[in-house]
Design a protein around this nucleic acid. Structure first.
Lengths: 198, 198
DNA sequence: TTCGTCATGTAATGGGTTACATGATTAC
DNA sequence: GTAATCATGTAACCCATTACATGACGAA
């Protein structure tokens, strides 16, 4: 259990869940849409696509109905991929999960970018898990900061202070998001299960 | 030209510039003092030390007796390292440089942590280089944000907005630091770096 | 026809982690 | 004397990047 699809695979699944794309397009969009893929290289992307085909998650699709997003829609030597049923199933399965791995920096950003396709309960679990993770980090940082303050010169101390502040802001951001989710939830006619604790 | 010592090597040089330490200690301190080494593994550290010995940058320092080096019968339990003359020279050389590589996230944090040993002109060059780097990133982000806004759902848009804000804050922080350096410069006649703490 | 961009792919390499294996020291 | 921690080290592996190589297409 908990196969825990890696970030790149999940990112590609997320891209292709909306529409078939070919590798070059996937790369461009991953770079702009999702957090952790600012400059993904082809040396990572193409092998990943190949592997996903082998795993039966995606397949090549004919480009007759492909929506030409950018400029020309003439036929080129390009290979568009779309999700298979297995790929769609895997994507749904992953969307519904919220294990500890989802709280890592990269993974969280991606999961958050996919919130539009994620159900509300999972959104909340992810946000709260992430918040917990960060507040633990915060505590660690505060502890070592306090414990060893005297050893640091002014610059090192400032670096630490700034790092701390960054994480604090992140936690505040999460608090805001969690609050929004909750109030949106209260606003809805709730068929949802107990939104009680935590 | 610009051999550009890697971050780990530079971090170790920085640690050992103050006092000899053994590997275990180096790891602990790198984790707390400097930015980019939160959880450096021994699998990285020890080979790095070995390589640096081979390169003549550091050497074992025996506080007390401690001969019998390679014998199978007994082994020193801990091995303290200190900078060689070459190591110290390399460190100084690196401290005085401020090439583009110093503006990367990891590298910048380390360079900043070493500001206490860095001369003022270099400090300013690094801060300004970093600022430029970030403001370029900011422009990129703003451009794609504006260009493709309509394609994003609310969550993706929020992620982008937050990412943008983070970078903006970072730039503001740098502006503040640069301002401080400048005014300190105007105020002081040249006092050199090292504040006399330990 | 040649150049720039789009597009796909492989090979070499690098920088790191995890897991493993072992020895020395300290505390009880 | 034994368990926990300190301390060093190696081997296997993971995952991504860079550099390289190829080719199609559109425009000058």
């Amino acid at each position: 259990m908990a196969r825990s699809t890696d970030v790149l695979t999940l990112g590609i699944l997320g891209m292709l869940a909306e529409q078939p794309l070919h590798g070059y397009q996937i790369r461009k969009r991953l770079g702009t849409d999702f957090g952790p893929f600012r400059a993904l290289s082809f040396g990572s992307l193409y092998p990943a696509l190949k592997r996903m085909v082998a795993d039966g998650l995606i397949e090549t699709v004919g480009e007759d109905s492909a929506e030409h997003v950018g400029a020309t829609a003439s036929r080129r030597s390009r290979i568009a991929y779309g999700l298979t049923d297995a790929g769609r199933a895997r994507f749904e399965e992953e969307l519904a999960s919220a294990g500890a791995h989802a709280y890592d920096d990269d993974s969280f950003d991606l999961r958050f970018a996919l919130f539009g396709k994620t159900d509300e309960a999972t959104r909340l679990r992810i946000l709260e898990g992430r918040r917990l993770r960060l507040s633990e980090r915060l505590e660690e940082l505060t502890a070592t900061h306090r414990r060893q303050r005297e050893r640091f010169d002014a610059y090192t101390a400032e670096l630490q202070r700034h790092g701390l502040e960054r994480v604090e802001r992140e936690v505040e951001w999460l608090d805001q998001l969690i609050e929004n989710e909750r109030s949106a939830n209260r606003g809805d006619d709730d068929t949802s299960a107990s939104a009680g604790n935590n």
